[in-house]
């Protein structure tokens, strides 16, 4: 028996919006500790990994671990039927369940919507992601990161990210010309969510596809801050933390031959 009731149902709606562009089908792996999902995009260039901890639900019940195979587009369509302030409850009987029940209660508890989503068998490759000490970790406003990706898309399909002592620089070069945006590390005691924090072990310079980064920024509504972790010749980690867990995106770099 699996049951998870999320008071802030709107969070689940935002989460689905932030993964559906990248991944079509995925397993929600449910266990005592919470709900996890890991899936790569079709081209094996990007990966999304999300975790919703059991403590974030009220109540949360999961007798034993199992996977719910979901078409994310279909789930997203059903979640659009929930109000932003609704309480969302997910239910499935056991591992052989062929559907996921969803109920949407409004805040006054006088309107309850009930839906069933057919589940599917998904044979998914699971990657083991090593613990990494990154060369550079940047915490910055998520809206700023979104704007930079959007702006540089005008110029090129790729962006080079250079991190040095107190600066992160995003550079794009294309047929029409070039552009770059430099952000200096700042510390705003009054508004820490607006500051740019750079932790640097050694300088890093890496190139990434902007198309994927634009997809990752669908996570912007989930958190005011985004965390970028970079190491030379390693995939980039883009993380949005939530009270209840996180969503992490990994992107393989472009490397010169």
């Amino acid at each position: 028996m699996f049951e998870a009731r999320l008071i802030q149902g709107g969070l689940l709606k935002k989460l689905l919006e932030s993964v559906k562009e990248l991944v079509t089908d995925a397993n929600f792996d449910c266990s005592e500790s919470g709900i996890a999902l890991q899936a790569m995009d079709n081209s094996h260039v990007a990966l999304v990994s999300l975790l919703l901890r059991s403590e974030g639900f009220d109540p949360y019940r999961c007798d034993r671990g199992f996977s719910l195979g979901v078409n994310l587009n279909s789930l997203n369509k059903i979640l659009k039927c929930a109000g932003n302030d609704d309480i969302i409850t997910l239910r499935a009987d056991d591992n052989s369940a062929d559907s996921l029940s969803l109920s949407f209660e409004n805040p006054n508890n006088d309107r309850i919507g009930e839906y069933e989503l057919k589940l599917m068998d998904i044979d998914q490759e699971h990657l083991s992601i090593p613990e990494t000490d990154y060369d550079a970790t940047i915490i910055m406003p998520s809206a700023e990161f979104q704007r930079i990706c959007r702006d540089l898309t005008v110029v090129s399909e790729s962006v080079t990210i250079d991190v040095s002592k107190d600066t992160i620089k995003f550079t794009a070069e294309g047929e029409l010309g070039s552009g770059n945006i430099k952000l200096k590390s700042t510390s705003s005691i009054d508004k820490p969510e607006e500051s740019v924090n750079i932790e640097l072990g050694q300088d890093v310079s890496l190139q990434f596809s902007l198309k994927y980064l634009m997809n990752f920024t669908k996570g912007t509504p989930l958190s005011e801050q985004v965390i970028l972790c970079l190491s030379e010749k390693m995939p980039l980690l883009v993380e949005y933390k939530m009270d209840i867990g996180y969503i992490r995106y990994y992107l393989a770099p472009k490397i010169g031959d």
């Binding site: 790569m40 990007a46 990966l47 083991s128 010169g256 031959d257």
Partner: peptide
């Protein structure tokens, strides 16, 4: 010229 790498060349299957 740089080419897009696959994640599979960094992360192993578990």
């Amino acid at each position: 010229v740089s080419s897009q790498k696959s994640l599979l060349s960094f992360f192993g299957k578990s």
